Amino acid sequence: MDRTNVGTIKEAAVRTIRRQRKVEWIHALDGVSFDVARGEIFAVVGPNGAGKSTLMKVIARVLPPTTGRVIVRGQVAPMIELGSGMNPELTARENIILYGSMLGRDPRHMRERVGPIVEWAGVEEFVDVPTRSYSSGMMGRLAFSVATDIEPEVLVVDEVLSVGDKAFRAKSQARMNQLINGGSAVVVVSHSIEMLKNLATRAMWLDRGRIKMLGPADEVLGGYQTSG
């Protein structure tokens, strides 16, 4: 074989492979449509990869939808990832002021709320310690305490409650009930079906980005629980 043609043959082979490569589009969410009323806790369930976290990010305006639209009336406080909105190099006190300011709250007001927030989270002894030294449980409690203390119109919670113990989950449920009694809307994702049964009034079951079931929480959660 003429060695001068080797490079040309290789290039042709690469071009051929590239032409044959197919791009397959995956819709993380497909035709998902629902509403959440004020004073309601709405649960979202589904297997891993169903699109739950993507949905939470779209609601929280972290990800823009490629098609369709999301209408959210009021301030959204997202708890999508553990420690989201928190700077690990800052102390709890500094993070509280920063988080509140990001959600439009007056820094002076947030300074006044530092005491009640860290007391609820049980981290008052570590208020001036950088949060990088916090355990996952401490971070979860602090983030939840801040997000709910500002009383947002919409609270979005994605599996963050799973890092806490039984006492924290009970306190969190009481705090969410307090929010909805004040007219807030709560959208929560969790694999803890029993917890959701105690919390939610309505629920949606996602599977491969599509709605499999939508309706009263008892029916949807019961159907999902027995499916697996």
Rank of each mutant, 00 (worst) to 15 (best):
D128Y: 00
H109T: 14
M102Y: 13
S101W: 04
G122M: 12
M110T: 07
V118P: 00
G137E: 14
E119R: 12
D128S: 07
D128P: 03
D106P: 13
G104H: 10
R108N: 11
M110Y: 04
R105H: 12
T131W: 02
L103W: 12
S135D: 12
A121P: 02
I117Q: 03
R141I: 08
E119C: 01
S135F: 06
R141D: 07
V118E: 09
G137Q: 15
L103Y: 11
G115L: 08
G115I: 07
S135M: 09
Y134N: 06
G122F: 06
G122Y: 06
G122K: 08
G122C: 12
V118L: 07
Y134T: 10
L103M: 14
R105T: 02
D128N: 13
P116E: 03
G140I: 01
P116R: 04
G122P: 12
R105V: 14
D128K: 03
V129P: 03
P130I: 00
M102Q: 14
H109G: 10
A143I: 02
E119Q: 15
R108E: 15
A121K: 06
V114G: 05
M138L: 02
S136D: 15
V114N: 07
W120C: 06
Y99S: 11
G115C: 01
S135I: 11
S135C: 14
L142C: 03
G104S: 10
R132P: 01
V123L: 02
V129W: 02
T131Y: 00
S101M: 11
M138A: 05
A121D: 04
D128L: 03
F126Y: 13
E125H: 15
A121Q: 07
G137V: 14
E125D: 13
R141V: 08
P116G: 02
G140W: 03
S135T: 14
A143Q: 15
M102P: 04
R111P: 03
S133Y: 14
P130E: 04
H109Q: 15
L103D: 06
M102K: 01
R113N: 03
R111M: 13
V118C: 01
M139F: 05
S136Q: 13
P130M: 00
R111I: 08
R105N: 07
S101N: 09
D128H: 05
F126W: 10
G104Y: 04
R113T: 00
S135V: 13
G122Q: 08
G140P: 01
L142D: 08
S136P: 10
S135H: 09
I117N: 04
L142W: 05
R108Y: 07
M102R: 11
I117A: 01
G122H: 04
M102C: 13
G115D: 15
V114I: 14
G104D: 07
V114T: 10
V114S: 04
R132A: 08
F126A: 11
V118W: 01
